[in-house]
Design a binder for these strands. Structure first.
Lengths: 340, 340
DNA sequence: TTTTAGCACTCTTTTTTAACAACTGCTAAT
DNA sequence: ATTAGCAGTTGTTAAAAAAGAGTGCTAAAA
């Protein structure tokens, strides 16, 4: 029986039962259900008393007098912090994750996508990913390559293995000589710096070195900035699974949810707000944003060999299956860092 | 009055009025509405007679005895083919399109995105885009570039300006000599050929030239194929606007719609099924796929200077505003091809 | 003390019934 | 050929009634 873990206090068992039942059914949980389905050897009246107390203490709520109980944010919090089984993962899931993560990738963004897809596939929750904070992402090398007489490609390599490339087209021919100059100057100025937009001062600084090449350099900076900015792109998977959850059966709730996911800026902020922990859980109103107060978010900083690959976030209803989600994340984290 | 175009037959006027009213309101249209809002100088009883005949002839339908009429697929078809105003575009819209299309882009995929976004923004319908059929897309040049001792980048340039690039990582060092060989061989074998997956025979063919380089070439072909395959990626904008249409107010309809858009293969097939025409309209059951029988699709092959840039498709309810959609597409088409 | 049976009470959900509103189709008149 | 007028259908809304689900409390049992 999965809650015979450490608990002797019946009230905690009741709380756990209510929460797990509610996570499964999305319906208020009655005292009778707990007795029947969770094998507690007490009468429903006894459980009712416990539930009344748990409500008093703020762990449970009642939608209305004649309904069963649902967990409060405080209840979920206790569950997540103390009651939750973080190895709730099946053999099939383990097998699936292993297979997925073994896919050979050459770009770290692909790895992030695979990880995100895997999490979403297993949990069925909407899953978003963003790249690592650019500040930790130092430029290792910049290469300019002539793709044709009038077309240049700029490739930026970073210390943690990310690669950005962008194309610049010109109305006039560019010589290999010029390209060599660009390679030298840009590397000279930017190598070792964090991967972030090239600001005005830096632009001036570069131009001061090659003041005769303004026409060549201006479009480069424009395009490079565009490419860098695109690094903030968020990757989203499984958003349409909202429809699987009864709390989104009202069309407006679903719409609202999807529109939140659509606003890149909000998502960035949410994902970036994660604390130092690898895994952070924000339940309902614990989220600062008004629009998220009915949702829960679990964020997960994934790393490989100490290199931060960005943050992956799962967004779902408050009755999210925290146990499963956290188990999956922990397992993936372990797996990602155990490979040679 | 917008239907004084070529019509003298009152029944056609009635049909047009019913369709346009239904497109606007999504409600069955009554005879009285037509008299009041569309200024036909007849009594509602007369219109009623016309409507009865139009129903007899299959152009209109009745949800139930006491309701107004809604257009049938046959009705929409007549409307699209003969009655529709294809210059239904406002000054603001023209202005907006102009501004958008003037954005400077260096990659044609960006132009497709901009065009797609513009169409979706104006029409509020879900809009999907795919790249051009690879057969018309000939390889112009392949470049291999050493990004580090153990990292190679392959760039494929095509005749119509598309650019694919991909990264290949190795466990051992690669010399510039080897890269030169790759450049020579791949161009020798693939230049001028259509951009499509490198098949087994071609792979053998290449390997026969550089049989000592199997370890280098194998991963290249793997990655190049991946990159080429990704060209089929579909770009989607405005899917969440479904929620704006009353026909999708039942959650299952909305869900169904969004899940259709999610299935890449289906979308590819639908968009590629377009006939020779620049603009094709598929109304309701005219679509072959069962899941699309309650939807309409308008596809639009966009070109610049004779070069096919791919197909853009709009998907929406059967009562889609065909007039607006087609007007926008025609205008964009003109605009794309009038620029120097 | 703790637990429990039992039942009245509350609130929601579902079903039923009734009243209303929206249009059509037809008839007879223009 | 057109129209006024009205009976007849069907859907929609509102109100009322019935059914269902669970709690909280009381008093008794363990």
């Amino acid at each position: 029986m999965r809650w015979n873990i450490l608990l002797n206090d019946r009230k905690k068992q009741v709380l756990q039962a209510v929460i797990e039942e509610y996570i499964n059914t999305a319906e208020p949980v009655s005292s009778a259900t707990i007795v029947e389905k969770y094998g507690l050897n007490f009468s429903s009246a006894t459980i009712r008393n416990d539930m009344a107390e748990l409500e008093q203490e703020g762990f449970l709520e009642k939608p209305h007098t004649s309904a069963g109980r649902i967990p409060s944010v405080k209840g979920y919090r206790l569950y997540v912090d103390e009651l939750l089984n973080d190895e709730n993962i099946s053999l099939e899931e383990i097998q699936y994750i292993k297979t997925q993560l073994e896919t050979k990738v050459n770009e770290i963004e692909d790895l992030t996508k695979i990880t995100t897809n895997t999490i979403s596939d297993i949990t069925h929750y909407a899953t978003v990913a963003i790249g690592p904070n650019s500040n930790n992402n130092l430029i290792k090398d910049i290469k300019f390559i002539l793709l044709g007489e009038r077309m240049l490609m700029a490739v930026i390599l970073t210390e943690n293995g990310a690669i950005k490339e962008t194309i610049i087209k010109y109305d006039e021919d560019i010589s290999q000589n010029q390209v060599d100059g660009l390679n030298y100057t840009f590397n000279n100025r930017l190598r070792g710096k964090p991967l972030e937009k090239i600001d005005k001062p830096m632009e001036e600084y570069i131009l001061s070195t090659m003041s005769d090449q303004i026409n060549v350099i201006k479009p480069i900076i424009l395009q490079m900035n565009k490419a860098i900015e695109e690094s903030d792109k968020i990757y989203l998977k499984g958003a349409n699974n909202v429809f699987d959850f009864p709390e989104f059966k009202k069309i407006d709730t679903a719409r609202n949810f999807l529109s939140i996911l659509d606003t890149k800026e909000e998502m960035l902020e949410v994902l970036n707000s994660g604390l130092a922990e690898d895994i952070n859980v924000y339940i309902g109103e614990e989220n600062e944003r008004e629009e998220l107060k009915d949702l829960s978010i679990v964020t997960f900083k994934h790393t490989v060999g100490g290199k931060n690959l960005g943050t992956i976030g799962i967004i779902g209803p408050k009755r999210m299956d925290y146990s499963k989600v956290i188990s999956i994340m922990k397992y993936i984290n372990k797996k990602l860092n155990s490979e040679t």
